[in-house]
Design a protein around this nucleic acid. Structure first.
Lengths: 202, 202
DNA sequence: GTCTATAGGATGATAGAC
DNA sequence: GTCTATCATCCTATAGAC
């Protein structure tokens, strides 16, 4: 009698997280429509039907991806809020928390893709609700005033855009791009460029 | 002998502009991947194969759409730059020129969709080049300093995001949304809401 | 829990008539 | 210049075995 359990078996919860991470990267790169469930499956090392089986539909998978991204983002903000040890201003700590989300590719970009699909009935509603959740966290929990929130979110959207553009591809080292990025996220430019380099090589 | 020319005939140049306008709206709503050539054809009142015939591929059509959008945007900026009659500050005039592009649906959103597709080989390159064109116009022609450009572009990306989210759909009249939008484009909130209303009704 | 096979639907693009 | 018909591809989702 041989062991019939495949070596690749694991608990559903673990696979779920694995697939969600993979999906985050894929949706971040290709967007909701452009990403295929087969892309996600390949990235996660499972079969395409399994992805669908586990999440029901591609749409539901995407919703879980952006909900997870929101949780990560708000958790990062909450940590920045709680960390009163450093003497760095709150606004700056929050900015760093935002940029730190770039460590996992697709977290911010998946959200960005959702944010420009407001006319999709289901995704649009979720995207608006998610955006407002962030807004209210900044306004209420973090205590930002209206101008601060606007500034903060605007910078965030510019960062998203430049990451989405994949600026490092054609303009790595371009002084104009460098100037723009330093303005948008000083102290973090090196980290961003390094991430881009790592991807190009890997 | 009867007239065999269909009533719908027109010169290619006119149809071209007609289709480009329609495509701008469709791509703005659904994004590059989500928009279909059939959607564009329907919006333009022509057949789907005709759209493909005229532009070669969907990709080339999209490239023409974003190039046209860039031309409109830069032309608007140039006008704001030339108009020295008013005593409004240049930065503000440029901001109004930006928001005025909302009058044609899809101009800003098509660009935004392109901006988050940096990893698409062809579209990504065009998107980066277009973004840098705007950047250099602001920096050199308009004479903005680094911080001004960063601020201006950040506000622009936030505006794009809120338009893309279609905020008016669920949050029309919400005081939080109103506050955020007034911050982002004062004097223009009414115009934007009116456009949203017109769409909902029409 | 995970896979293979495949159905079913949409979509980009071509062929060819008028 | 514009349309109808149609092909080939791709992709989501289902069925069912192990």
């Amino acid at each position: 009698m041989t062991i019939s359990v495949p070596l690749t078996r694991m608990k559903a919860g673990e696979r779920r997280e694995l697939i969600l991470r993979a999906a985050t990267g894929v949706f971040g790169t290709s967007g909701y429509v452009g990403a295929t469930t087969a892309d996600v499956a390949r990235a996660a090392g499972v079969s395409q039907p399994y992805v669908v089986r586990m999440f029901g539909t591609k749409e539901q998978l995407f919703l879980e991806v952006i909900n997870r991204a929101l949780e990560l983002l708000l958790a990062g903000f909450q940590s920045a809020l709680d960390d009163t040890s450093s003497d760095v201003a709150l606004e700056k700590r929050m900015g760093l928390a935002y940029v730190n989300q770039l460590k996992e590719h697709g977290v911010l970009l998946s959200l960005m893709h959702a944010f420009v699909l407001g006319r999709e009935p289901v995704i649009g509603r979720a995207a608006r609700a998610g955006f407002m959740k962030v807004y209210r966290f900044l306004r209420e929990d973090a205590g930002f005033d209206a101008a601060q929130v606007q500034n903060f979110l605007a910078s965030g959207m510019l960062i998203n855009t430049m990451i989405g553009l994949d600026m490092a591809e054609d303009y790595d080292g371009d002084p104009d791009v460098r100037e723009l990025m330093e303005c948008a996220f000083p102290e973090k430019v090196e980290m961003v460029r390094e991430l881009a380099r790592k991807r190009t090589e890997g």
